[in-house]
Design a protein around this nucleic acid. Sequence first.
DNA 1: GGCATTTATTTGCGCACACAAGTATCCTAG
DNA 2: CTAGGATACTTGTGTGCGCAAATAAATGCC
Lengths: 152, 152
Amino acid sequence: MPTAWLSPNEMRAWRNFIESVNTMWNALGSDLASFGLTLGDYEVLVRLSEADDEQLRMCDLATALQLSPSGLTRRLDGLVSTGLVERVACPADRRVMFAALTGTGRAKLAEAAPEHVASVRNRFLKGLTPGQVRELGDIFETVRTNLTAAPQ
Amino acid sequence: MPTAWLSPNEMRAWRNFIESVNTMWNALGSDLASFGLTLGDYEVLVRLSEADDEQLRMCDLATALQLSPSGLTRRLDGLVSTGLVERVACPADRRVMFAALTGTGRAKLAEAAPEHVASVRNRFLKGLTPGQVRELGDIFETVRTNLTAAPQ
DNA sequence: GGCATTTATTTGCGCACACAAGTATCCTAG
DNA sequence: CTAGGATACTTGTGTGCGCAAATAAATGCC
Protein backbone atom coordinates (compact mmCIF):
# COMPACT_ATOMS: atom_id res chain seq x y z
CA MET A 1 0.00 0.00 0.00
CA PRO A 2 2.16 2.86 -1.29
CA THR A 3 0.80 5.64 0.85
CA ALA A 4 2.45 8.87 -0.14
CA TRP A 5 2.69 11.57 2.47
CA LEU A 6 0.63 14.68 1.89
CA SER A 7 2.12 17.21 -0.50
CA PRO A 8 2.70 20.72 0.84
CA ASN A 9 -0.45 21.94 -0.87
CA GLU A 10 -2.47 19.09 0.49
CA MET A 11 -1.08 19.58 3.96
CA ARG A 12 -1.85 23.25 3.82
CA ALA A 13 -5.43 22.60 2.72
CA TRP A 14 -5.96 19.98 5.37
CA ARG A 15 -4.49 21.92 8.26
CA ASN A 16 -6.26 25.16 7.42
CA PHE A 17 -9.45 23.23 7.03
CA ILE A 18 -9.42 21.40 10.34
CA GLU A 19 -8.21 24.46 12.19
CA SER A 20 -11.04 26.53 10.72
CA VAL A 21 -13.90 24.13 11.24
CA ASN A 22 -13.79 23.91 15.00
CA THR A 23 -13.34 27.63 15.52
CA MET A 24 -16.06 28.46 13.06
CA TRP A 25 -18.45 26.04 14.66
CA ASN A 26 -17.91 27.56 18.07
CA ALA A 27 -18.31 31.06 16.68
CA LEU A 28 -21.59 30.20 14.93
CA GLY A 29 -22.83 28.53 18.08
CA SER A 30 -22.07 31.48 20.30
CA ASP A 31 -23.69 33.84 17.80
CA LEU A 32 -26.88 31.81 18.17
CA ALA A 33 -26.67 31.58 21.94
CA SER A 34 -28.24 35.02 22.34
CA PHE A 35 -31.46 33.50 21.00
CA GLY A 36 -31.28 30.64 23.45
CA LEU A 37 -30.58 28.23 20.61
CA THR A 38 -27.78 25.83 19.92
CA LEU A 39 -26.62 25.16 16.39
CA GLY A 40 -28.28 21.77 16.65
CA ASP A 41 -31.56 23.28 17.74
CA TYR A 42 -31.43 25.71 14.86
CA GLU A 43 -30.88 22.92 12.37
CA VAL A 44 -33.96 21.14 13.67
CA LEU A 45 -36.08 24.25 13.23
CA VAL A 46 -34.78 24.79 9.69
CA ARG A 47 -35.49 21.23 8.63
CA LEU A 48 -38.98 21.31 10.06
CA SER A 49 -39.77 24.69 8.52
CA GLU A 50 -38.82 23.32 5.11
CA ALA A 51 -40.91 20.18 5.44
CA ASP A 52 -44.51 19.66 4.32
CA ASP A 53 -46.84 20.64 7.14
CA GLU A 54 -43.73 21.74 9.05
CA GLN A 55 -43.31 18.26 10.46
CA LEU A 56 -41.05 15.27 9.92
CA ARG A 57 -40.86 11.72 11.15
CA MET A 58 -38.22 11.27 13.81
CA CYS A 59 -36.22 8.81 11.76
CA ASP A 60 -36.20 11.04 8.69
CA LEU A 61 -35.16 13.99 10.77
CA ALA A 62 -32.41 11.97 12.41
CA THR A 63 -31.07 10.96 9.01
CA ALA A 64 -31.22 14.51 7.70
CA LEU A 65 -29.33 15.78 10.74
CA GLN A 66 -26.85 12.90 10.75
CA LEU A 67 -27.85 12.09 14.28
CA SER A 68 -28.41 8.79 16.01
CA PRO A 69 -32.01 8.00 16.95
CA SER A 70 -31.30 8.46 20.62
CA GLY A 71 -29.41 11.66 19.95
CA LEU A 72 -32.42 13.08 18.18
CA THR A 73 -34.77 11.97 20.93
CA ARG A 74 -32.73 13.93 23.45
CA ARG A 75 -32.29 16.95 21.26
CA LEU A 76 -36.00 17.05 20.69
CA ASP A 77 -36.64 16.78 24.42
CA GLY A 78 -34.97 20.15 24.79
CA LEU A 79 -36.93 21.77 22.00
CA VAL A 80 -40.20 20.33 23.26
CA SER A 81 -39.54 21.58 26.77
CA THR A 82 -39.04 25.09 25.45
CA GLY A 83 -42.17 24.80 23.32
CA LEU A 84 -40.52 25.26 19.95
CA VAL A 85 -41.42 21.81 18.68
CA GLU A 86 -44.05 19.28 19.60
CA ARG A 87 -44.35 15.55 19.19
CA VAL A 88 -47.35 14.43 17.15
CA ALA A 89 -48.42 10.83 16.92
CA CYS A 90 -48.89 9.44 13.43
CA PRO A 91 -52.37 8.02 12.91
CA ALA A 92 -51.33 5.82 9.98
CA ASP A 93 -48.39 4.14 11.71
CA ARG A 94 -48.46 4.06 15.44
CA ARG A 95 -44.73 3.43 15.72
CA VAL A 96 -43.79 6.80 14.35
CA MET A 97 -43.74 10.20 15.98
CA PHE A 98 -43.65 13.42 14.07
CA ALA A 99 -41.60 16.33 15.22
CA ALA A 100 -43.73 19.36 14.40
CA LEU A 101 -42.87 23.03 14.45
CA THR A 102 -45.05 25.08 16.79
CA GLY A 103 -46.05 28.69 16.27
CA THR A 104 -43.47 29.63 18.85
CA GLY A 105 -40.87 27.60 17.00
CA ARG A 106 -41.71 29.26 13.71
CA ALA A 107 -41.46 32.67 15.32
CA LYS A 108 -38.15 31.81 16.98
CA LEU A 109 -36.69 30.68 13.68
CA ALA A 110 -37.90 33.84 11.93
CA GLU A 111 -36.28 35.85 14.70
CA ALA A 112 -32.94 34.03 14.61
CA ALA A 113 -32.55 33.32 10.91
CA PRO A 114 -31.36 36.74 9.70
CA GLU A 115 -28.79 36.88 12.44
CA HIS A 116 -27.63 33.36 11.68
CA VAL A 117 -27.29 34.10 7.98
CA ALA A 118 -25.26 37.17 8.84
CA SER A 119 -23.19 34.97 11.10
CA VAL A 120 -22.47 32.49 8.32
CA ARG A 121 -21.39 35.34 6.09
CA ASN A 122 -19.31 36.90 8.77
CA ARG A 123 -17.60 33.75 9.99
CA PHE A 124 -17.28 31.87 6.76
CA LEU A 125 -18.02 33.59 3.46
CA LYS A 126 -16.78 37.07 4.25
CA GLY A 127 -13.44 37.30 2.51
CA LEU A 128 -14.20 34.90 -0.34
CA THR A 129 -14.68 35.87 -3.97
CA PRO A 130 -17.78 34.65 -5.84
CA GLY A 131 -15.47 32.34 -7.75
CA GLN A 132 -14.19 30.84 -4.55
CA VAL A 133 -17.71 30.34 -3.26
CA ARG A 134 -18.60 28.48 -6.43
CA GLU A 135 -15.45 26.42 -6.18
CA LEU A 136 -16.24 25.64 -2.56
CA GLY A 137 -19.63 24.34 -3.60
CA ASP A 138 -18.01 22.15 -6.26
CA ILE A 139 -15.36 20.84 -3.90
CA PHE A 140 -17.71 19.81 -1.14
CA GLU A 141 -20.19 18.40 -3.57
CA THR A 142 -17.39 16.11 -4.70
CA VAL A 143 -16.45 15.31 -1.13
CA ARG A 144 -20.02 14.64 -0.10
CA THR A 145 -20.67 12.39 -3.09
CA ASN A 146 -17.40 10.63 -2.46
CA LEU A 147 -18.28 10.00 1.16
CA THR A 148 -21.73 8.62 0.53
CA ALA A 149 -20.34 6.43 -2.25
CA ALA A 150 -17.69 4.80 -0.05
CA PRO A 151 -19.72 3.52 2.89
CA GLN A 152 -16.94 1.58 4.51
CA MET B 1 -28.90 45.67 9.36
CA PRO B 2 -29.63 44.72 5.73
CA THR B 3 -29.00 41.02 5.92
CA ALA B 4 -29.35 39.50 2.49
CA TRP B 5 -30.29 35.86 2.28
CA LEU B 6 -27.69 33.49 0.92
CA SER B 7 -27.39 33.35 -2.85
CA PRO B 8 -27.89 29.96 -4.51
CA ASN B 9 -24.14 29.54 -4.85
CA GLU B 10 -23.56 30.48 -1.24
CA MET B 11 -26.30 28.19 -0.08
CA ARG B 12 -24.88 25.34 -2.11
CA ALA B 13 -21.41 25.87 -0.69
CA TRP B 14 -22.69 26.09 2.86
CA ARG B 15 -24.96 23.09 2.70
CA ASN B 16 -22.44 20.84 0.97
CA PHE B 17 -19.87 21.94 3.47
CA ILE B 18 -21.81 21.23 6.65
CA GLU B 19 -23.14 17.99 5.28
CA SER B 20 -19.63 16.84 4.43
CA VAL B 21 -17.85 17.79 7.59
CA ASN B 22 -19.77 15.63 10.01
CA THR B 23 -19.71 12.57 7.78
CA MET B 24 -16.05 12.98 7.02
CA TRP B 25 -15.19 13.38 10.67
CA ASN B 26 -16.99 10.19 11.56
CA ALA B 27 -15.33 8.34 8.70
CA LEU B 28 -11.86 9.47 9.72
CA GLY B 29 -12.59 8.53 13.29
CA SER B 30 -13.73 5.05 12.44
CA ASP B 31 -10.72 4.55 10.20
CA LEU B 32 -8.53 5.25 13.20
CA ALA B 33 -10.53 3.08 15.58
CA SER B 34 -8.74 -0.05 14.38
CA PHE B 35 -5.61 1.32 16.05
CA GLY B 36 -7.45 1.98 19.27
CA LEU B 37 -7.15 5.71 18.72
CA THR B 38 -9.68 8.47 18.49
CA LEU B 39 -9.14 11.42 16.20
CA GLY B 40 -8.47 13.50 19.28
CA ASP B 41 -5.86 11.07 20.54
CA TYR B 42 -4.18 11.08 17.17
CA GLU B 43 -3.99 14.86 17.15
CA VAL B 44 -2.27 14.80 20.51
CA LEU B 45 0.33 12.34 19.28
CA VAL B 46 0.98 14.41 16.15
CA ARG B 47 1.46 17.63 18.08
CA LEU B 48 3.80 16.01 20.55
CA SER B 49 5.81 14.28 17.84
CA GLU B 50 6.37 17.64 16.15
CA ALA B 51 7.46 19.41 19.33
CA ASP B 52 10.98 19.83 20.66
CA ASP B 53 11.85 16.88 22.87
CA GLU B 54 8.48 15.42 21.90
CA GLN B 55 6.80 17.23 24.75
CA LEU B 56 4.57 20.25 25.26
CA ARG B 57 3.20 22.18 28.18
CA MET B 58 -0.42 21.33 28.84
CA CYS B 59 -1.63 24.86 28.21
CA ASP B 60 0.20 25.12 24.89
CA LEU B 61 -1.15 21.78 23.82
CA ALA B 62 -4.67 22.79 24.81
CA THR B 63 -4.40 25.95 22.73
CA ALA B 64 -3.02 24.06 19.75
CA LEU B 65 -5.86 21.54 19.94
CA GLN B 66 -8.51 24.18 20.61
CA LEU B 67 -9.46 22.37 23.76
CA SER B 68 -10.37 23.68 27.19
CA PRO B 69 -7.86 22.99 29.96
CA SER B 70 -10.14 20.47 31.59
CA GLY B 71 -10.86 18.82 28.27
CA LEU B 72 -7.18 18.31 27.69
CA THR B 73 -6.65 16.97 31.20
CA ARG B 74 -9.25 14.29 30.56
CA ARG B 75 -8.06 13.48 27.09
CA LEU B 76 -4.56 13.07 28.40
CA ASP B 77 -5.82 10.80 31.17
CA GLY B 78 -6.82 8.33 28.50
CA LEU B 79 -3.53 8.52 26.65
CA VAL B 80 -1.56 8.18 29.87
CA SER B 81 -3.56 5.16 30.94
CA THR B 82 -2.73 3.43 27.66
CA GLY B 83 0.93 4.43 28.02
CA LEU B 84 1.18 6.50 24.86
CA VAL B 85 1.91 9.72 26.69
CA GLU B 86 3.29 10.56 30.09
CA ARG B 87 3.08 13.57 32.33
CA VAL B 88 6.41 15.11 33.20
CA ALA B 89 6.82 17.74 35.86
CA CYS B 90 8.62 20.89 34.81
CA PRO B 91 11.62 21.61 37.04
CA ALA B 92 11.69 25.30 36.17
CA ASP B 93 8.04 26.02 36.91
CA ARG B 94 6.30 23.69 39.25
CA ARG B 95 2.86 24.73 38.07
CA VAL B 96 3.33 23.28 34.63
CA MET B 97 3.13 19.72 33.45
CA PHE B 98 4.53 18.53 30.19
CA ALA B 99 2.72 16.01 28.09
CA ALA B 100 5.50 13.84 26.69
CA LEU B 101 5.40 11.21 24.00
CA THR B 102 6.53 7.78 25.18
CA GLY B 103 8.29 5.21 23.04
CA THR B 104 5.02 3.35 22.83
CA GLY B 105 3.29 6.52 21.74
CA ARG B 106 5.87 7.21 19.07
CA ALA B 107 5.50 3.67 17.79
CA LYS B 108 1.73 3.88 17.79
CA LEU B 109 1.82 7.09 15.79
CA ALA B 110 4.26 5.59 13.29
CA GLU B 111 1.93 2.64 12.96
CA ALA B 112 -1.23 4.68 12.49
CA ALA B 113 0.05 7.62 10.47
CA PRO B 114 0.23 6.04 7.01
CA GLU B 115 -3.26 4.68 7.39
CA HIS B 116 -4.54 8.03 8.58
CA VAL B 117 -2.94 9.86 5.68
CA ALA B 118 -4.53 7.38 3.32
CA SER B 119 -7.78 8.00 5.12
CA VAL B 120 -7.55 11.76 4.62
CA ARG B 121 -6.89 11.20 0.95
CA ASN B 122 -9.67 8.72 0.62
CA ARG B 123 -12.32 10.63 2.56
CA PHE B 124 -11.39 14.15 1.58
CA LEU B 125 -8.89 14.79 -1.18
CA LYS B 126 -9.70 11.89 -3.45
CA GLY B 127 -11.72 13.44 -6.26
CA LEU B 128 -10.15 16.88 -6.16
CA THR B 129 -7.84 18.35 -8.77
CA PRO B 130 -4.51 19.88 -7.70
CA GLY B 131 -6.02 23.26 -8.53
CA GLN B 132 -8.92 22.60 -6.21
CA VAL B 133 -6.59 21.53 -3.43
CA ARG B 134 -4.66 24.74 -3.79
CA GLU B 135 -7.88 26.74 -3.84
CA LEU B 136 -9.04 24.91 -0.74
CA GLY B 137 -5.87 25.92 1.03
CA ASP B 138 -6.41 29.55 0.01
CA ILE B 139 -10.05 29.53 1.04
CA PHE B 140 -9.52 28.13 4.50
CA GLU B 141 -6.51 30.29 5.07
CA THR B 142 -8.81 33.24 4.50
CA VAL B 143 -11.45 31.75 6.75
CA ARG B 144 -8.98 30.97 9.50
CA THR B 145 -7.41 34.42 9.37
CA ASN B 146 -10.85 35.97 9.32
CA LEU B 147 -11.92 34.00 12.38
CA THR B 148 -8.90 34.80 14.47
CA ALA B 149 -9.16 38.46 13.48
CA ALA B 150 -12.78 38.82 14.62
CA PRO B 151 -12.69 37.50 18.17
CA GLN B 152 -16.22 38.49 19.06
C1' DG C 1 -54.39 -16.02 11.14
C1' DG C 2 -49.99 -16.56 13.55
C1' DC C 3 -45.17 -16.08 14.15
C1' DA C 4 -40.55 -14.34 12.81
C1' DT C 5 -38.49 -10.27 11.01
C1' DT C 6 -38.00 -5.53 10.21
C1' DT C 7 -38.82 -0.76 11.50
C1' DA C 8 -39.51 3.35 14.84
C1' DT C 9 -38.67 5.27 19.02
C1' DT C 10 -37.19 5.59 23.83
C1' DT C 11 -34.30 4.37 27.90
C1' DG C 12 -29.90 2.81 30.38
C1' DC C 13 -25.34 3.63 30.37
C1' DG C 14 -20.93 5.57 29.36
C1' DC C 15 -17.71 8.99 27.20
C1' DA C 16 -15.90 13.48 25.88
C1' DC C 17 -16.11 17.90 26.67
C1' DA C 18 -17.13 22.86 28.65
C1' DC C 19 -17.62 25.92 32.60
C1' DA C 20 -16.75 27.17 37.20
C1' DA C 21 -14.39 26.51 41.38
C1' DG C 22 -10.40 24.85 43.86
C1' DT C 23 -5.33 24.36 44.55
C1' DA C 24 -0.65 25.30 43.71
C1' DT C 25 2.83 28.20 42.08
C1' DC C 26 4.93 32.23 40.20
C1' DC C 27 5.44 37.27 39.57
C1' DT C 28 5.25 42.11 40.76
C1' DA C 29 4.80 46.24 43.43
C1' DG C 30 5.63 48.46 47.47
C1' DC D 1 9.83 40.15 51.91
C1' DT D 2 5.20 40.09 51.71
C1' DA D 3 0.42 40.84 49.75
C1' DG D 4 -2.34 40.76 45.47
C1' DG D 5 -2.86 39.16 41.26
C1' DA D 6 -1.79 36.29 37.32
C1' DT D 7 -0.99 31.66 35.53
C1' DA D 8 -1.24 26.37 35.21
C1' DC D 9 -3.54 22.54 36.10
C1' DT D 10 -7.18 19.45 38.18
C1' DT D 11 -11.75 18.34 40.05
C1' DG D 12 -16.95 18.83 40.49
C1' DT D 13 -20.87 19.15 37.80
C1' DG D 14 -23.79 19.22 33.87
C1' DT D 15 -24.81 18.51 28.77
C1' DG D 16 -24.94 16.28 24.33
C1' DC D 17 -24.41 12.37 22.04
C1' DG D 18 -23.53 7.25 20.61
C1' DC D 19 -24.28 2.28 21.38
C1' DA D 20 -26.95 -1.42 22.97
C1' DA D 21 -31.14 -3.07 24.87
C1' DA D 22 -36.05 -2.57 25.59
C1' DT D 23 -40.61 -1.66 23.81
C1' DA D 24 -44.03 -1.27 20.43
C1' DA D 25 -45.94 -1.80 16.08
C1' DA D 26 -46.03 -3.06 11.24
C1' DT D 27 -44.89 -6.49 7.58
C1' DG D 28 -44.01 -10.81 5.31
C1' DC D 29 -44.11 -15.76 5.04
C1' DC D 30 -46.35 -20.11 5.70
